[in-house]
């Protein structure tokens, strides 16, 4: 089986974290992914999703509804633990520090965004190096494209949701244009890949 051979390869790499960035049109996709992941998912899953400025609460609850994994908005300096889903808190940038911890920041917006996907991705890339899986989903701006490229350059595994499948393909297009070598996958394939991570 094709998938099995591929999985055998990824198993050896020993990934340490998955980070997903998304904006407009990504909420349903993330919900579906969370619904599919097993309760014993072996990695921390970091989410950096743009949200409407005034919808600051209720997001965690909405994502938790169908997730078998706990969904948390981390506090500053919280340790990053496997089997948990971490959502970048509203109105903060979420950095990944060396030593497997989060650091939050209220710095200016980047690409009009706070949280900025680029900043989360870049810091995660430096913290996890080639042990990181980075995924960009549907979105209506270009945030994340640069960050995903950095993950790829640090040797991480990078995936872009198939733009044909995206409600808003600006973000995925930007990522592919900036770095054409990303894996461009459908949501089904992405989900299947994540489910099979060991």
């Amino acid at each position: 089986m094709k998938v099995k051979g591929f999985m055998a390869k990824t198993e050896n790499i020993g990934y340490k974290a998955v980070i997903i960035g998304g904006s407009a049109g990504s909420f349903q996709v993330v919900t579906n992914i969370l619904q599919s992941l097993p309760a014993d998912f072996p990695l921390p899953l970091l989410l950096c999703l743009h949200r409407l400025k005034h919808v600051r609460s209720g997001f965690v609850e909405a994502l938790s509804l169908k997730s078998k994994l706990p969904v948390i908005e981390p506090f500053d300096k919280d340790a990053i633990k496997p089997g948990k889903v971490y959502l970048a808190p509203a109105n903060y940038h979420m950095y990944i520090e060396l030593g497997n911890r989060f650091a939050l920041s209220t710095e200016e917006t980047v690409n009009h965004s706070r949280p900025s996907i680029d900043l989360s991705f870049i810091t995660a890339a430096h913290a996890f190096q080639n042990k990181l899986i980075g995924i960009i989903l549907s979105g209506a701006n270009k945030d994340g494209a640069y960050g995903l490229k950095v993950i790829a350059e640090m040797g991480g595994f990078t995936i872009v949701q198939d733009p044909n499948q995206c409600e808003m393909p600006t973000m995925t297009d930007a990522a592919i244009n900036l770095f054409p070598k990303h894996n461009v996958w459908t949501i089904e394939k992405i989900t299947n890949f994540l489910i099979n991570l060991k």
């Binding site: 950095y95 990944i96 520090e97 060396l98 650091a103 920041s105 710095e107 900043l119 810091t123």
Partner: peptide, 9 residues
Amino acid sequence: YSEKSLRRR
């Protein structure tokens, strides 16, 4: 100072 933010700044 926190390493990551200082580097970023």
